[in-house]
Design a binder for these strands. Structure first.
Lengths: 336, 336
DNA sequence: TTGTATGCGTTATCAG
DNA sequence: CTGATAACGCATACAA
């Protein structure tokens, strides 16, 4: 039989309650505390977390949803993020459980609600900001502690963390302008996403800040994927009325790179190419970048911190926007 | 107050024991079962998993270690693997917890042992095959259900799953031979790793199968990373006594690609380049590959299945080696 | 500061 | 097939 709190209590000639107190750093006489600790060590006692969880109605698990996007190699977002989350979770003696992306929003909603109802998960970090407001409201109704990455409709009282990607694109675009470019093609993601709108605005502000008049023809919209970037660049390439490209993200940038190469256009000789992403720029073509200081890692940490704050004070809603850095690297012939 | 099994029992005019039985699909009279189920629905009852875990001494969580390698963008291994694990875990009503890579083997060992002792995790899938035999023995001593990816010293009785990477390299090398190459450079990882030895053997067998005499000078060893591939290729490039390169993995292949490009060598025009990895070949430069049918995904599923088998029958040790497929793609100018 | 008693929600045992 | 009851290991009032 495994050793329990009672065994420790008996051998230390105290009550189980006292042992519980030293276990949880509650006020205990110095001397008894010492004695109990010795017995714990001697008996090799390890508190049963299942019992503790049960008694305290706390699972000590937080859930993190994995976005399906994480399955495309371009999207390194999730793992780095996860490292940040885990660092903070570990510090709070919590474990991190992965909530699978089930495909349909309804299924995911049900799973998230179910795991919470069963007391299996104390709170969530949601990295799937594509949920509809209705879903968020459902979560709020159950009073599920929640932190969301990215942006959520303003009126919904949920904590969010996000990287300032408008600023990122602003920096990327400014970089091109400083290189002397004026006609800069912007490869945008679908504009119905807040984040796409944000980044487009970053591009526009950079132009305006330098008194360059934006040209609607230089803004091409497609999926924010490798293929989307490829398609968008191909569509724009024929009249080649630009000298540089700023892409919504790395994936689109790489897609565009492929399109340019197919046409024999030298990058960056003939066309300069810049992509912004929450990871350090050029991740894809700079595989060995260390990631610890990337914004995403910080984002993970901040998200977790915020969740634990929420766990303690359920009404503490907060938003956080982290600044980004532009890192320019020459790589595979592209400024990416 | 939340609704418990007792509330259900009362309203259905049965005992809690009976409700428990219908909850766990144990033999119950059709009619009572029906009645109980109706009450459950009516009361919106959700069994408290914390209580269940406590009573049954089962956490319903399995742990998966994340390899630090997963933090380099080249290594897409982990997320895909995880999807496979989760699919099986979900089917078994288990959750998947991530065990952080702490850096030192000792720290990780302690964490793994500690979480198990605390009943927090019922079993592990270890994706860090770099653990020393001593560590594995420690786990066995505590009787921790374990499945390891990759290879473990034969004498240690632990279940493993692995992709047949020797076969992968064999196929990759054969592909080059069929293209007409005879002098094929092999970029090897450090030979003290079983898997590196395996893959080198795959290369050698392919040569021998076609009656090509292996040349020791054509085998270069370095880290199995992007940088390692870059360094290895640079070292070999000067006497350029080869017409093709087979790399231990994608990372090294991409490193080599960079080295070749720097020297103005056209790939695949002047030098053919092939890399093998557990993911479909060319992941890096084929970002939009679907991953569901990749070996790694299967590997994750098999690992999880094996773990659950072990969970039920603690003495059931098994090894599994999955076959691989060679997928050749033209991409960014390289056959990768 | 410490001990006693009780409760947490479920499963398991063993009668009936 | 069903029900009463003990047990799981810890936390927490409350009393001492």
């Amino acid at each position: 039989m495994r050793v329990t709190i009672k065994d420790v209590a008996k051998l230390a000639s105290v009550s189980p309650a006292t042992v519980s107190k030293v276990l949880n750093n509650k006020p205990v006489k110095q001397e008894t505390g010492q004695r109990v600790k010795e017995v714990i060590k001697k008996l090799d006692y390890h508190p049963n977390l299942l019992a503790k969880s049960f008694a305290r109605k706390i699972s000590y698990h937080i859930g993190v949803t994995v976005s399906t996007g994480a399955l495309t190699p371009v999207d390194q977002f999730f793992l780095i993020f996860l490292q940040g989350v885990m660092e903070v979770a570990t510090a709070n003696t919590y474990s991190v459980s992965i909530v699978p992306a089930l495909g349909s929003e309804q299924e995911e909603e049900n799973l998230i609600k179910e795991m919470f109802r069963k007391n299996m998960i104390d709170g969530y970090i949601l990295t799937n900001p594509y949920y509809s407001p209705r879903t968020f409201l459902e979560f709020l109704k159950l009073d599920i502690p929640l932190v969301v990455t990215g942006r959520v409709q303003e009126s919904i009282p949920i904590s969010t963390v996000d990287a300032n990607s408008a600023e990122g694109i602003y920096l990327a675009t400014s970089h091109l302008i400083e290189l002397g470019h004026e006609r800069i093609l912007f490869l945008s993601g679908p504009k119905q996403y807040f984040v796409c709108e944000d980044r487009l605005n970053g591009y526009l502000s950079a132009l305006r800040a330098r008194k360059i008049k934006p040209d609607g023809k230089l803004i091409i919209e497609d999926d924010f994927t490798f293929e989307g970037g490829y398609r968008a660049a191909r569509r724009a390439i024929d009249d080649l009325d630009f000298t540089a490209i700023c892409a919504y993200n790395d994936a689109m940038a790489i897609g565009a790179l492929k399109a340019l190469q197919e046409k024999g256009i030298k990058v960056p000789r003939q066309v300069s190419l810049v992509g912004y992403d929450d990871l350090p720029i050029g991740t894809m073509l700079q595989p060995m970048l260390t990631t610890v200081h990337s914004p995403i890692y910080q984002l993970g940490k901040e998200a977790a911190k915020m969740l634990f704050a929420n766990l303690k004070d359920r009404d503490n809603i907060d938003d956080l926007i982290l600044p980004v850095k532009l890192i320019v690297r020459e790589s595979c012939g592209a400024v990416l």
